[in-house]
Write a protein that binds this DNA or RNA. Structure first.
Lengths: 337, 337
DNA sequence: CCCTCCGTTCGAATCGGTTCGACAGCGGGT
DNA sequence: ACCCGCTGTCGAACCGATTCGAACGGAGGG
């Protein structure tokens, strides 16, 4: 079922079949029909490897995901889903590489074996070795999240600093004076994980500006830790009246903690955060939050990547999203003393 | 940076370089070293497309996932993660195809363009067109889940019928006479989705055997639906004292419902189910459940697939897992009348 | 001393596509 | 009548690897 077989059966040369399929040179309508008939009959599809070899491109995008052993967060999952979706829409396939840990072989294969035309990288650290490796390999890539100094690389990210700051301002406007930030895990903060880092910075700056008292807590990305973190907060800082968080995975736990402590939200405690709509609306009462447009981000990332692939010389582009905060039911005036 | 460049710099022929790398023919140690030195210097990696073209295999596995627009369940995510993990372990790459809906192009490309050596299929329906298409394409594949009549295909699955039956027996042993099954979504049941179907069958059979009264409810795979479903159950069947469920995504909602209704578990209501350990242990009180070994299943699926690829003639193999039920804190004696 | 065999290497064919150059035939402009 | 350009087709080269057959030289056996 190679192209030669089609050519033989249609009584033409291999190149004619190729031109009939690609349309790069005119082929008589009758001939084209004859070829198409044979193709339909045999069920022929061009061999992807042969095409990739000759064309020098694979029509495949690489997607680097966190090591599979780690549970993907909902947000990461959203990125994966939307990248795959967008790629499929552009008739591209997606090759997965669980990188980090000891599985760098897969990453190595992907970037140096010319298996992909471009790469989408996620879970970017402020200093990220993978970025420099991709740069050296001369492979087009786009990151979801951005490094400390993203010189020539295209990226898309959510402006955590601004969003957290906005939450703080919103809470301050409501009269809250003591506000806590429930951040991502201590490990991530220590590892220089961008969102955690920038949330911290935005929080500190906003708190300073408004002359508030700020408390920052690092919390593992899971419900149990969220509950524990909330209890800890109540114990050590009982005077805090508002919480802002970027840790969506901890939300169910925070909610549990609130319910068990019998705290009235938003009567006695206000909460505002950054989270995918899914999490914000699942919270009781529904969470006032900046909705991270996970699905859109993956799609835009692919868009940026396709641009980079099409015109490698073009300047890198950056998309810093600042979705509006959706007012829901979890924030209200600070309780009177 | 092709093999010719290496050959030139090392002063040997291209075939010698190839043999030095593959070891399929002896190469003098000194020559081998010289070649290796050049390779290390240049950072050469064989072009994947060229190799695939000549060898006739791509060293890539295909993984068909539900359309990306749908939220992947935790279990599906576990499959994806473990398949990717296992493939990476065998130095294979994984190509993703979101199939179903209008994205069949990707599926079509994958199976007929010889882009992959084999395919892992998940979310199998009792009658599944994709299986027949793969069969026709003559591509080795393995399914996670199984069709109604899986003749010559290898698969791995969890024995939902038996597990649900065991839950029922366990509850019956504790004295419960009226038991509800909270199944997966009505759509899945209607579409002939295996686990939902077999859970139903196992439930009905066990209930009949023990002479119990059984109530079956279909429930969307999300917390909100779980809560609603529980409330509905309390309202319409207030005499039910035990629940068994295969809908892990609904568990948090069921828990919420229980808490809001102030029902004592396991004092007034027992619950036993089938769920990944993660969900069972996250439930309060911890859920007595058969722990679905998601991660193991993906790994075993890849194992089966590699066997199929290695020896296409060998008979298909089936792995029907029946993990034991872990007794936790959610089941107890039926309340006295 | 000749013949084999083995280790080592090379050249050429091959995988299945795409694409370039050439060429035939035909219509139109001058 | 001639040349140009366009349409439609073919043959051959090429992408970058693997692999087969053959050649060469030295060691070992008869």
């Amino acid at each position: 079922m190679d192209i030669g077989e089609i050519a033989r059966r249609a009584g033409v040369s291999r190149s004619t079949v190729s031109y009939a399929l690609s349309g790069r040179r005119p082929v008589r309508a009758e001939t084209k029909q004859r070829i198409q008939a044979v193709i339909d009959e045999i069920g022929y599809r061009p061999n992807a490897a042969a095409r990739a070899l000759k064309e020098g491109r694979t029509r495949t995008l690489g997607l680097v995901i966190p090591p599979a052993s780690l549970r993907l967060t909902d947000m990461q999952l959203g990125f994966v889903a939307s990248v795959v979706e967008a790629a499929a829409h552009a008739d591209l396939d997606v090759l997965l590489s669980p990188s980090g840990g000891d599985h760098d072989r897969s990453f190595e294969r992907m970037i140096s074996g010319r298996r992909v035309d471009g790469v989408v990288l996620m879970e970017i650290r402020l200093e990220d070795e993978r970025v420099t490796r991709l740069d050296r390999a001369g492979l087009p890539f786009v990151t979801i999240g951005h490094t400390a100094h993203p010189r020539g690389t295209s990226w898309i990210d959510v402006d955590y600093a601004t969003l957290v700051a906005r939450c703080v301002h919103h809470l301050a406007d409501l009269g809250h004076r003591r506000i806590a930030l429930i951040n991502r895990s201590p490990e991530l903060v220590a590892a220089g994980y961008g969102p955690a880092h920038r949330a911290q910075a935005g929080f500190a700056e906003a708190v300073r500006r408004r002359g508030l008292t700020g408390v920052e807590l690092a919390c593992q990305d899971d419900p149990a830790a969220g509950e524990e973190c909330f209890e800890q907060l109540r114990e050590r800082h009982p005077d805090v009246t508002a919480i802002t968080t970027v840790n969506e995975a901890a939300l169910p736990g925070i909610q549990r903690g609130i319910e068990r402590a019998g705290v009235d939200v938003p009567g006695a405690m206000s909460i505002a955060g950054v989270a995918a709509r899914h999490w914000a609306e699942g919270f009781r009462p529904q969470l006032t939050a900046a909705d991270v447009p996970t699905l859109e981000m993956g799609a835009r990332a692919v868009e940026l990547l396709l641009e980079r692939i099409a015109t490698p010389g073009a300047p890198a582009r950056h998309l810093l999203l600042t979705p509006p905060i959706s007012l829901r039911d979890s924030t209200g005036p600070a309780p009177a003393r």
